[in-house]
Amino acid sequence: MEGRQKWAMTVDVDRCIGCQACVIACQSENNIPISDEPLFNQRRAMEWIRIERYWEGEFPDVKARFIPIFCQHCDDAPCEPVCPVYATYHNSEGLNVQVYNRCIGSRLCVNNCPYQVRYFNFWEPEWPESLQNQLNPDVTVRSRGIMEKCTFCIQRIRRTGREAKRDGRKVEDGDRGLNPACVNACPTDTLVFGDVMDPDSRVSKLKEKEMSEDGRGYHLLGSLGTGPNVIYLKKVDEHASGPTHA
């Protein structure tokens, strides 16, 4: 493997304003079925990236806190060993990938995911006639009965890699073609995506700085030892009360 890569992301919780732009971008990039009201009421809605909102304090002194949660692409992903058919496994670029064709829908992986970021297709996905041409041709439309989850927009990673190879150049850090849809859509630069094997990438530098002794970085549910490739940077707020949830 020439130029090994390992993809990672940082999420600066301090910057997140909970605008849900990433959710919409993800929805349209990855052909995620439309999560309408009945689906939400059935508790079967799908959002590969979701914004969890926490209220803090009592009225009128109340604050909303947001945290985007999506697949953490763990190095020791609990979902991987339990899949009976290798539908989910770890690839050589540190991504936790889902092979739709192999998936039989046993849902053991969902139960074993402490972040609850894996989504199951309970129904055959349907789009209204007007949206048929909106589907992204680079992404498989999943049938019912299988799992799906955030892929770090692997189709974009693959395409830029392919094009870079064709043109004989290196994949650029921060290339908008490389970045997942959510990163491109984020208005506040909350999400930073890149290759941690490249010491000059923004994400490597952030990781080095923030995961050090006095940095803001942490892993979600770090006590489980799953080794996520997503680093969260905690909120800096002098009014914040007590330790945050994670």
């Binding site: 609990p78 006590s223 489980l224």
Partner: peptide
């Protein structure tokens, strides 16, 4: 052993 949780390891 299976869960690879740090406290259990």
């Amino acid at each position: 052993w299976y869960g690879k949780k740090p406290n259990e390891e």
